[in-house]
Every structure is written in C-alpha cells, then in structure tokens.
Lab assay of single mutants.
Amino acid sequence: MPSETPQAEVGPTGCPHRSGPHSAKGSLEKGSPEDKEAKEPLWIRPDAPSRCTWQLGRPASESPHHHTAPAKSPKILPDILKKIGDTPMVRINKIGKKFGLKCELLAKCEFFNAGGSVKDRISLRMIEDAERDGTLKPGDTIIEPTSGNTGIGLALAAAVRGYRCIIVMPEKMSSEKVDVLRALGAEIVRTPTNARFDSPESHVGVAWRLKNEIPNSHILDQYRNASNPLAHYDTTADEILQQCDGKLDMLVASVGTGGTITGIARKLKEKCPGCRIIGVDPEGSILAEPEELNQTEQTTYEVEGIGYDFIPTVLDRTVVDKWFKSNDEEAFTFARMLIAQEGLLCGGSAGSTVAVAVKAAQELQEGQRCVVILPDSVRNYMTKFLSDRWMLQKGFLKEEDLTEKKPWWWHLRVQELGLSAPLTVLPTITCGHTIEILREKGFDQAPVVDEAGVILGMVTLGNMLSSLLAGKVQPSDQVGKVIYKQFKQIRLTDTLGRLSHILEMDHFALVV
C-alpha cells in the first residue's frame, strides 16, 4: 500500500459497493488471473465517493441489488447463522422517566444476534452475496479491517462455511474481542490505534497488504460494500417497522461504517417519512454534520465500534436529520445504567446512543415513540467499562463513588512517597548505550525526554532486548525507535489509591 493515498477510480455505471474482489474501477472485475494482476490496485480507499443510485421515491424494481426479506425461524435451526436477525424490541421503562421523557422509549437489542452484535447481519450478508456472485469459493481466505464486531461476525460465518479468516484490528480494541476471535479460529493482526486510516500501518493498510500477498484472499470491505446497508434496509428496518406496527417518530443510532443508519433510515424514509433520524458520533470522530460539531482538541476516545477519521463510502449522511456528539463518560455511564436499571447487557456504544436519545427525544410528546439501536453486548468489555477499576483509572468514576473498604494508605498523596527525580535518556542515544546505562543503574525503564525536557515516551529494558533479539533494531539504532509513546501519567497530588489502580493494569506510571 502506498504512503500517498491515490484516488480510487470510478467506473461508468453500476453501484460502487459490489461485493467481491475490487477492480481499479471499484466494481467486480472478471477475466484471467493475468488481467486481474495487471488491473487490481494495491488498495482502494474506504472513503471513495459513493456511486449508489438510491433515491427517495425511486421504484424498488430499479435497484441493481439482490434483495432479501426477513424469514421466520424454524423450530430447529440448521446452523447458528440462522440465529442472525429477528432481534427483540424491548421497552426501556426507567431511564426515559428518569430523564423526563414523555414518549415511549424502545430498544432494538442487536446483541441477541448469534455473534453478539449488529455486525453479524452485514457479515453474513457480505459472505452470502460474495458466494452468490462467485467471488468467494471453498478454501478462500477472508481478510477484514475491523474494530472487532464485524470480525467476530465474519469469523463466526467463516467457521460454519469453512473459510480461512484473518482479522486486522487496532490495538485499542478489547482483549475479549481478541479472545472470541481466536476461539472462532480467526487469525488476528493488531495495528497502532493512532495510525491514520490511509497510513500503511493502519488496520485498513495492513489488511490490503495481506490481501496482495495471500492468494485467493478477499477483503469484503464493510466500508464500501453495498451488502452492509442492504442488510439493514432489507431486514433490520423491516423488523423495526413490523415490531412497531409502522408507528415510530424517531430513530437514534450510533454511527461507525454508517451501514446501520443508512440502511434503516432509507427504508424508514420510504415507509415512515415523518420519522426523524438521529445520528450519534463520538467526540474525536469526524462523521457528524455540520462540520463545526467535529471541532475539538480530542483525537482519541475509548468507546469502541463507532466514529472514524474518514467518511466511509457506505455512509449516506443525507438521510440523517440531526447529529449529536457523545463523550466517553456519558457513554459508559449510560451503558452501566442500562445494565443495572433495565437488565440490558449492552456495550458502550449503546450507552452513547441512549445518552443522546434522552436529549433528542425531549421534543417528542406522549403517545409518540423513539427507537434506539443497541449494537453489541457487554461480553466484549468485561475488563473495560464493566470494571470499576478501569473506570477509575480512566477518570470516568471517582473514588467516592465506590463504597468498598480501602487499605490505610489509600488516600495518601503520591508526594508522600518522597520520590527522587528519575533517570532520563535522550532519544538520540543508541539502544546499546541505553541498555548499558539501565543495567549500570539497576533500572528496568526510563523516560525519554528531548533537550527541552519534554517527555516523549518510555523505554524499557525488556522491550529493547526483545527488539534486538527479533532483529527489529540494532544496538547502533537510536533509542527513539523503541519508545512507548502511550503511558499513564500521575500527579504528586493524586492518591496512592489512584496509582494502585493504574499499576494493576500497566507496568509503570510516570509522575509529573
């Protein structure tokens, strides 16, 4: 994948999101292997301009796509893939009243899908469409860049269908997702969380590099694949309309690839034109409109599966009536509230959605109805927002919020430890010299600072030695090549209790 991002070429006709291997024109390309080798690009942008032909009021008969309808489940399912879809609609009884809503608040519980998330729908649909058009064949390999849930859905379907599955996901995604993927037989590649989507090191860039190296491999490409919004247009939206008897006044959905909100909203605009569509985008993402909503100094966020630093091709923002931004604290607070007060075992993005819903639905009156999409299960986040310690460490809970008995030293300040200034190293000294210094002084790690004293990161003896043994660096290389740029900081005025929580999850903390 090139470091400079080429513009994806656009073909003359058809839909841009065809499933299957992508040609340089962004659509299915038939021909000899030699032709494909000559024409197939190194990668295709996940934010390529959409060429979708959908228009409100256009006859369904003019759609270029294969459409399906929700099917009634048999008493005995032939395999677990038949437990994807037909998820329950559940009334939220307490939270709406707590925040003064007059309307009825309903939750579409997508964590009841077989793999635990709304992404099971698009995973199965992308595979079925690729099999139907002859792209996927027995023994082929599926590769997908994902925040985890699409990966789980694909790995689940691949396990049943017999495909090899490789999932490329950023490091910030939970260990629970990784464990589930491994249990399903998927191979996992992790990428830096802070890598831009168009960087060769991003999950998108690495996935395309693997595709170019592995024979008979395919990126189904949830960011561009029409099967993504079509899955929701054909099934999720129809289920909502049936469950609500066609009567709903507002739908609120958090947005990642945009397939969920695009597919549902398009069908609702056709069948229930008075329904307002509300999009939820986390602070630090750029999906919301108008652009002024996205202006923030924050560039990272903890909530998973929603928000991006690019506009995915499948996201149709014209069908969203209003956007709201959400933050991590309210997302996790509301997710825990949904679990504790409503018994809905949902993930953090569901918290984002409901946090926005109780604001947006203030305009609705008694007798009206708001539906929220709860995308995934708490299963993926047992060591994250479900953990009091994690919430404390991230600053989303305060010590006084917890009532468990603490040891005698818990409320003492870090400054009472009488710490001395640490050994520091410059980023320009060599790895070999740094190892000598650390061994001589008896230290395992040291902060790396520039000549102005600005902290650049941390270097550890173990990481340097393993990097040297693996051949990633040489003793003569500058130590700046092996620094940890993500590390926890703590102030002298913070409590030892807070430091204790940090050290339970990290090997060190830097006192500043």
Rank of each mutant, 00 (worst) to 15 (best):
P2R: 11
P2N: 14
S3R: 13
S3W: 01
E4R: 07
P6E: 12
Q7Y: 15
Q7F: 13
E9V: 10
G11I: 01
G11A: 14
P12R: 13
C15R: 06
C15G: 09
P16K: 15
P16M: 07
P16F: 01
H17Y: 14
R18M: 07
H22A: 01
H22P: 01
S23F: 11
K25L: 09
G26S: 15
S27V: 11
S27C: 14
S27P: 01
E29W: 13
G31Q: 01
S32L: 08
P33V: 13
E34G: 10
D35F: 01
K36I: 15
E37M: 01
E37I: 08
E40W: 10
L42N: 01
W43M: 10
R45A: 10
P46Y: 03
P46A: 07
A48E: 01
R51G: 07
C52V: 03
Q55M: 15
L56F: 14
P59F: 01
P59V: 01
S61Y: 10
S61G: 01
S63W: 01
S63E: 08
T68R: 09
A69R: 14
P74Y: 01
K75A: 13
K75L: 15
K75S: 12
I76C: 07
L77N: 09
L81H: 09
K82L: 03
D86C: 06
T87I: 10
M89L: 14
R91H: 07
R91L: 05
N93Y: 06
I95G: 03
I95S: 04
G96L: 05
K98R: 04
K98V: 10
F99G: 12
G100S: 05
L101F: 05
L101R: 01
K102A: 12
C103G: 10
L105M: 01
L105R: 11
A107F: 03
E110G: 01
F111Q: 04
N113V: 07
N113R: 04
A114F: 06
G115S: 07
V118G: 07
R121H: 01
R121M: 04
R121V: 04
S123C: 04
R125A: 15
E131C: 01
R132F: 08
D133G: 06
T135S: 01
T135Y: 14
T135H: 04
G139Y: 07
G139Q: 09
D140S: 10
D140C: 01
D140N: 01
I143L: 07
E144L: 04
E144K: 14
P145W: 06
S147T: 01
G148M: 15
N149L: 05
T150M: 04
T150A: 01
G151M: 01
I152A: 03
A155I: 04
A155V: 06
L156Y: 04
L156H: 06
A157F: 01
R164V: 06
R164H: 13
C165I: 04
P170L: 01
P170A: 01
K172D: 01
M173T: 07
M173G: 04
S174M: 01
S174K: 01
E176P: 01
E176C: 03
E176A: 08
K177Y: 01
V178N: 01
R182G: 10
A183D: 01
L184E: 04
G185I: 01
A186F: 01
P192W: 01
A195T: 09
R196H: 01
R196C: 08
R196Y: 09
E201M: 05
S202R: 05
V204T: 11
V206R: 01
A207Y: 03
A207R: 01
A207V: 01
L210F: 07
L210C: 07
K211H: 01
N212A: 01
N212D: 12
N212P: 04
P215S: 09
S217G: 10
I219F: 06
I219W: 06
L220F: 04
L220G: 03
L220I: 01
D221V: 01
D221A: 01
Q222I: 04
S227D: 15
L230F: 13
L230D: 06
L230Q: 09
A231V: 11
Y233A: 01
T236C: 05
T236Y: 01
T236A: 04
T236H: 06
A237E: 15
D238R: 15
D238I: 07
L241I: 01
Q242Y: 10
Q242P: 05
Q243D: 14
G246R: 13
L248T: 10
D249A: 14
M250L: 12
M250R: 04
M250W: 01
L251N: 07
V252L: 09
V252A: 07
A253T: 13
V255D: 05
V255S: 01
T260P: 03
T260L: 05
I261V: 13
T262L: 01
G263A: 01
G263R: 01
I264H: 07
K267G: 10
K267H: 07
K267Q: 14
K271C: 15
P273M: 14
P273V: 09
P273A: 06
G274V: 05
G274W: 13
R276G: 01
